[in-house]
Design a protein around this nucleic acid. Structure first.
Length: 356
DNA sequence: TCCGGAATCA
DNA sequence: TGATTCCGGA
């Protein structure tokens, strides 16, 4: 059972990590888990306030704008913040200065034209705040893809199955021409993950983890560079793992030279799934942009290369050395470099790490 | 009201 | 490092 600490520091009732259709990892609400600091960070505190009904009159999520919140009573928010930090001289001017420092970190940005209105960049926030010890956690009982996905997804189950989250992760059909165009215009992650580069095409969740993690980054591409910030990465591994999707196409495409063991014939191609080596596509799915502003309508995951997927066999029940996929994946029956995808039933039956 | 530089603190 | 404090400017 998950608990959170109240604003006064006591343990309170369990929280639902579900805000306006967004699921947060549990550590996002645990002040003591703030990475890089032993003290609570302001954005944590803001999330705490936003989470609580009793502060709805002080600060609240903006209806219809995911991640956007309004400070209705700046002085009160500043007072609460000052009380938490034992800074009685705190005021909104100082607090807002701290918030403005989040701009450069891309944790937050200002909603122009709206007073006291800010917006979280959740993907950046989750990467920046994902504790290293929760990354690459070998005991995580999920099919984890990409370093971001390796942040232990402490989600409430409803988040996985809910329509909003599906919509966040899905995108609508991309034509083959579009795919080809994107394929050729794909930019290296080195540039896409650069801080301050607002024109990036891809958002590498693993960018905060350093170059060594690049191979397993889970990346979201958008048409305009304004990333689909609300495709909460935490949901990705669950979706990949549980395969409870009604349309079922969220599976990594594999490119394997040799026929995979454990399957005499390749699995059927899942309807609507367009795959390219190293890239996921989730066509025929609700428009991502429905959940956020902007025309971001493409979700891709150029993530693990085949050689990173097909790792040395490990003991059953453990993740492979890539931290994400064990050798059992070889039983999925996949063709090389094709649009072949694993049969979800096969995956379900084969996967050793599914929770009971 | 908002922004960001600069110095400073813990 | 993540604020806090102060401040000039838009």
């Amino acid at each position: 059972m998950h608990h959170n600490r109240s604003l006064e520091g006591s343990v309170t009732a369990p929280v639902k990590y579900w805000i306006s259709g967004l699921a947060f990892p549990d550590w996002a609400y645990k002040t003591e888990s703030s990475p890089g600091s032993r003290q609570i960070q302001l954005w944590h505190f803001i999330l705490e306030l936003l989470q609580k009904e009793e502060f709805r009159h002080v600060i609240a999520w903006q209806q219809g704008e995911y991640g956007e919140f309004v400070i209705k009573d700046p002085d009160e928010v500043a007072r609460l913040w000052g009380r938490r930090k034992c800074k009685p001289q705190m005021n909104y001017d100082k607090l807002s200065r701290a918030l403005r420092y989040y701009y450069s970190k891309r944790i937050l940005h200002k909603t122009k034209g709206k007073r006291f209105t800010y917006k979280f960049n959740f993907s950046e926030l989750t990467v920046a705040s994902c504790p290293p010890w929760k990354v690459w956690a070998p005991s995580a009982p999920h099919l984890l893809v990409g370093s971001a996905a390796l942040c232990q997804p402490a989600l409430v189950p409803v988040a996985v199955q809910s329509e909003p989250l599906h919509s966040m992760l899905y995108t609508h059909r991309a034509t083959e021409a579009q795919l080809a165009r994107e394929r050729t215009s794909w930019e290296p992650l080195e540039t896409s993950g650069e801080k301050g580069n607002r024109n990036f095409k891809g958002e590498c969740f693993g960018s905060a983890l350093g170059p060594g993690w690049r191979g397993s980054c889970c990346c979201f591409l958008t048409l305009q560079g304004d990333l689909p910030s609300f495709a909460s990465f935490a949901a990705v591994p669950r979706l990949c793992c549980d395969l409870t999707l009604p349309s079922g196409p969220i599976l990594p495409p594999f490119s394997s030279e040799q026929p995979l063991s454990g399957s005499s014939k390749p699995g059927p191609r899942l309807p609507g799934l367009l795959c390219m080596p190293g890239t996921w596509h989730f066509p025929e799915l609700p428009l991502l942009a429905r959940l956020r502003q902007g025309p971001s309508d493409r979700l891709q995951c150029p993530f693990l290369r085949p050689e990173e997927l097909l790792v040395n066999p490990g003991p059953k029940g453990h993740l492979g050395s890539n931290g994400g996929l064990s050798s059992e994946i070889q039983g999925l029956g996949l063709g090389k470099g094709t649009s072949m995808s694993p049969n979800p039933e096969t995956l379900r039956a084969t996967w050793p790490l599914d929770p009971p």
